[in-house]
Computed example of a mutant assay.
Amino acid sequence: MTTDVPRLTGLRGVLFDLDGVLTPTAEVHRRAWRRMFSAALAARGVVEPYTDADYFAYIDGKPRLDGVRAMLASRGIVLPEGTPGDDPVAETVAGLGNRKNAAFTAELAENGVTPYPGSVAFLDAAIAAGLAVAVVSSSRNAEPVLRAAGLRDRFAHVVDGEVAAALGLPGKPAPDTYLHGARLLGLGAEECVVVEDAHSGVQAGRDGGFGLVVGVDRGAGALELLASGADLVVDDLAELIPELPTADPRDPA
């Protein structure tokens, strides 16, 4: 743990990002993005190749099409927006987004996903302690990922890219999806902890006025996550189990 902060006692809800926090799907996403953008940039004769540093700088934690736009802009490329139903071969922002999603879906179907053991231990300990929990993810694949990981039954509420689009909620780094997740739990932002591995998600937690923002360092860098607004950074969520309350914080003293 990178710094000493108040215990989780007193907080009533935990809002989990999915990819990179509960499940190692961030690596699946990174492989899908790398495959898609490496080919797309090469086809345009772009000299500077796509790297994992581009993923963390322009894509990580953002809604899919926002990541496509940001990455293209980093290489001075502008494409038509297209429409959500664009064929994956279409040379549009939406087409590239659908191309990446096709690669991700194939990876998930072929290899599945196993959740981080420490994250599952913390999740179950939080539920046992009486904390309300929800998933808040930019991904439109949150539901199939949770099912593949065997975690869907832990959550009454999942706020993902599909929900955000249906409700017109801006994605991370805007705090709106996390604020919506807190409302679904019947809680205020100040009563919830946000758990994130991405700079954009940490910024959302900071700007939303949440009671605690926990960064999980899966490659973004502890110091960088702290600079983005995390109150503390851990390598594994199991480190936080001793900080959980031992009784339901909603119960009268």
Rank of each mutant, 00 (worst) to 15 (best):
Asp54Phe: 12
Leu79Ser: 11
Gly215Gln: 07
Ala125Ile: 11
Asp124Glu: 15
Gly229Val: 05
Leu179Cys: 03
Gly95Thr: 03
Trp33Cys: 04
Ser200Ala: 15
Tyr50Trp: 15
Asp87Trp: 01
Pro252Gly: 11
Thr3Arg: 15
Pro24Met: 08
Gly168Ser: 04
Pro252Thr: 13
Ala132Ile: 00
Phe104Asp: 01
Lys100Arg: 13
Asp86Lys: 03
Asn141Pro: 06
His29Leu: 05
Leu212Ala: 07
Arg75Pro: 12
Cys192Met: 03
Ala142Gln: 10
Leu179Tyr: 02
Val195Cys: 02
Leu96Thr: 00
Pro84Cys: 10
Asp124Asn: 15
Ala165Ile: 10
Val158Trp: 06
Gly85Tyr: 00
Leu65Phe: 12
Tyr55Leu: 10
Glu107Ile: 09
Glu107Pro: 01
Val214Ser: 03
Tyr58Leu: 12
Leu151Phe: 08
Ala90Gln: 06
Ala43Thr: 05
Ala182Val: 01
Leu223Phe: 01
Ala70Arg: 14
Leu187Cys: 04
Ala103Glu: 14
Asp217Trp: 07
Arg69Val: 14
Val93Pro: 02
Phe122Thr: 06
Ala198Glu: 01
Pro117Gly: 07
Phe210Cys: 08
Val163Tyr: 12
Ser138Gly: 15
Gly186Trp: 01
Phe16Lys: 02
Pro249Gly: 11
Ala189Trp: 00
Ala103Gly: 09
Gly221Pro: 00
Arg154Pro: 00
Asn111Ile: 00
Ala149Met: 05
Val113Trp: 06
Leu79Ile: 10
Arg147Thr: 09
Leu169Asp: 04
His199Leu: 15
Ala32Arg: 02
Val93Cys: 08
Asp66Gly: 10
Arg34Tyr: 06
Leu72Trp: 10
Ala156Phe: 00
Ala102Lys: 04
Thr3Val: 13
His180Glu: 14
Gly229Ile: 04
Val159Cys: 06
Met71Phe: 15
Arg183Asn: 00
Val214Asn: 02
Ala204Lys: 03
Ala125Lys: 12
Thr114Asn: 11
Ala238Phe: 03
His199Gln: 13
Ala70Ser: 13
Leu151Asn: 05
His199Trp: 00
Leu8Pro: 04
Leu184Ala: 02
Gly67Pro: 05
Arg218Ile: 07
Glu27Gly: 04
Leu72Val: 12
Ala134Gly: 05
Arg31Leu: 10
Glu243Arg: 15
Ala109Val: 08
Pro249Phe: 12
Glu191Tyr: 00
Asp87Met: 01
Tyr55Lys: 08
Asn111Thr: 14
Leu79Thr: 10
Gly130Trp: 07
Gly45Val: 05
Ala94Leu: 01
Glu162Ile: 15
Pro6Leu: 09
Val78Asn: 02
Val21Asp: 07
Glu48His: 11
Ala109Gly: 13
Ala102Arg: 13
Ala132Phe: 01
Val28Lys: 01
